[in-house]
Amino acid sequence: MENSSIPILRLGNYLISSPQIAIHDKIAVQYKDEVLQKIVALKAKGLILDISAIDVVDSFLVRVISEIASSANLMGCPTVVTGMSPAVAITLTEMDLSLSGVFTALDIEKSLKILREKEGRHA
């Protein structure tokens, strides 16, 4: 299977991923697999999805993000979605799509704080 070519970086025990391209349905599914594989491989204790570069979302992408988060959570890896733009936030609420089981934060720094609190450590 082809690579989605979305970088997933490691920072300590956490994974940080920031898609900079438009995510089509096919890429989204690949991306989900890659992220979950990486969590296992690196024994990650937290995942930060920075979607600040994404200015259009559809219900499928929201579902994928929600699935990534729920699956990661089951694997002991809480997920924080960060950098959502006002337009995306309005679209999601107007479509009545909620990111269940996902933490949200204003930026990566605050995401790290949330993950550290989850892990029981203090920033």
């Binding site: 959502m84 006002p86 936030a89 309005i90 609420t93 990111l99 949200t104 934060a105």
Partner: peptide, 12 residues
């Protein structure tokens, strides 16, 4: 409620 939910998604 819409405002609250949208803000929550942004992390506020």
């Amino acid at each position: 409620l819409l405002t609250i939910q949208a803000a929550k998604l942004m992390g506020t």
